[in-house]
């Protein structure tokens, strides 16, 4: 369980990215932060592994304030998947997946063997093991990214618009795949997207943010659809629906 207590973040340039966020992210469920750019969703995600430290307030993981934890060790204990995969271009697929176990001091052979198993988990052809990221398609790169996020078997998986840069068909495939993985592994997933449909599809809980990192509504997808808190929420949901301009 991840807890935000009155968390605010003001960047040195004066931008208020997150203001007074109070929120609980339950364990073993998927919580999706959705909002347009400038809604602070990525900042919120990055505060969980201390890529960004809050200006005020505190964040607790399983009751421990992460402000007192060593950032590098904390990051190695949390999976991270980002847009455009963020893979290391000079490492093979296998070594990319094994990155975190290797950083934590695992033996190369063991880490690679485990990486091979993870390739199967995320549905990657084992023949791709020795390829470099640039030799893969966008969808394959994202699968490698997910496998890398899972490699150290973290309880928490942070996903920053992981499917934002792939075409709609591949995105749909990856979404289904993620749902399957989540059913099997039951991680605490924190997912960031600007796509409301993706949020409703993947989220057990959806946090809709308005500009400046203010929580507009938090709830299960059904609640947001049936009882939008205000016009901003209903407007955001409607804007995501395809308009019937074609006859």
């Amino acid at each position: 369980m991840i807890e935000f207590r009155q968390v605010s973040k003001r960047f040195p340039d004066g931008t208020l990215a997150v203001s007074g966020l109070d929120l609980v992210i339950p364990a073993r469920q998927t919580t999706v932060f959705v909002g347009s750019s400038g809604s602070g969703k990525t900042t919120i995600l990055r505060m969980i592994n201390r890529m960004v430290d809050p200006s005020s307030g505190s964040i607790l993981i399983d009751g421990n304030d992460i402000g007192g934890l060593e950032p590098v060790a904390l990051r190695r204990s949390i999976g991270y998947v980002m847009q455009n995969s963020g893979l290391l271009p000079h490492r093979t697929v296998l070594d990319n997946i094994a990155t975190v176990p290797l950083l934590r001091g695992a033996k190369r052979g063991t880490a690679r063997e485990h990486a091979r198993e993870l390739m199967a988990v995320v549905g990657l052809d084992p023949n791709l093991a020795q390829r470099y990221p640039a030799q893969l398609s966008g969808g394959q790169q994202q699968r490698v990214g997910v496998a890398r996020g899972l490699a150290a078997d973290p309880n928490i998986l942070l996903m920053d618009e992981p499917f934002g840069a792939v075409d709609p068909i591949v995105r749909a495939e990856l979404q289904v795949e993620l749902q399957r993985i989540q059913r099997e592994l039951g991680k605490t997933i924190v997912f960031v997207t600007h796509d409301i449909d993706e949020a409703f599809l993947l989220g057990d809980q959806v946090a809709l943010l308005r500009h400046g990192g203010i929580l507009a509504q938090l709830g299960a997808p059904r609640e947001l659809l049936d009882n939008p808190a205000d016009e901003f929420v209903s407007g955001f949901i409607d804007a995501g629906r395809p308009r019937s301009i074609l006859r």
């Binding site: 990051r75 190695r76 455009n84 290391l88 271009p89 990155t99 975190v100 950083l103």
Partner: peptide, 29 residues
């Protein structure tokens, strides 16, 4: 060196020194 790659290396738990020798220098190669 691509800022997205160094950012992602930081995100998965590379410390500064190790990131320089293991990621930035090889990519500058």
């Amino acid at each position: 060196v691509d800022g997205q790659v160094t950012l992602s290396a930081t995100a998965v738990g590379y410390g500064g020194w190790r990131r320089f020798w293991g990621v930035e220098l090889p990519l500058a190669g």
